[in-house]
Amino acid sequence: MNTKDKILQASLQLFNEEGEQAVTSVDIANVLDISPGNLYYHYKGKDPIIHQLFADFEEEFKMVLQAPIEKPLELSDNWVYFYILFEEVADFRFFYRNLQALIERYSDLEQQFRALVNLKIKTMASIIFDLNQQGFIRISPIEAAQMAQRFAQQLTYWPINHSLMTPQVSIPVSIHNGVFSLISQLTPYVVEGSDEFLEVTMQFRDKMLKAVQR
């Protein structure tokens, strides 16, 4: 890994652990055991680091969010996919936790971030639409639209909720709770006789609990 990538990786880790505002570019250089001058040669301060981190995050997240829009997921894959979405947010949680402050300071990122949330809504709508189409759930268009919004909101704001309400809980457990919360919101819409859906859900919940507690 080259120095530029190392700087990005160390910055992301520090931001996530300490909060972006508490970290200076000198801190980043210290962690990497390089001189502040060396860091400055690659990135002229924290601003370009944050922009680069956001660009990388955005590219990856967009790719992930696009997948179910392009091709419907298998029933059991939906839950695994939710997990990946939450994990994606967790990787970049410093930004989500400090959303308002960071958007005010880096105003050019506001529009891009909003576009990303819009894509989340679209992805969630696509998943709900496919489940309806496949006959596992029966949901009205209005409810589906609202649920997609709610799912996207939960996905976007869970880091804030986590640090405010359940800071003692580990990130993986918090992700698990988030995924399970989404799934349980779908269960009232399960079509009667669609045992496959419930079976997959229960099986997934049990295995997930085991995996998380390990």
Binding site: V64, S76, V80, Y81, Y83, I84, E87, F204, K207, A211
Partner: peptide, 14 residues
């Protein structure tokens, strides 16, 4: 994304 799904499934014991 498929690769990630596979890795996640393995991690979850699925």
């Amino acid at each position: 994304v498929n690769d990630r799904m596979d890795r996640m499934k393995a991690a979850l014991g699925l």
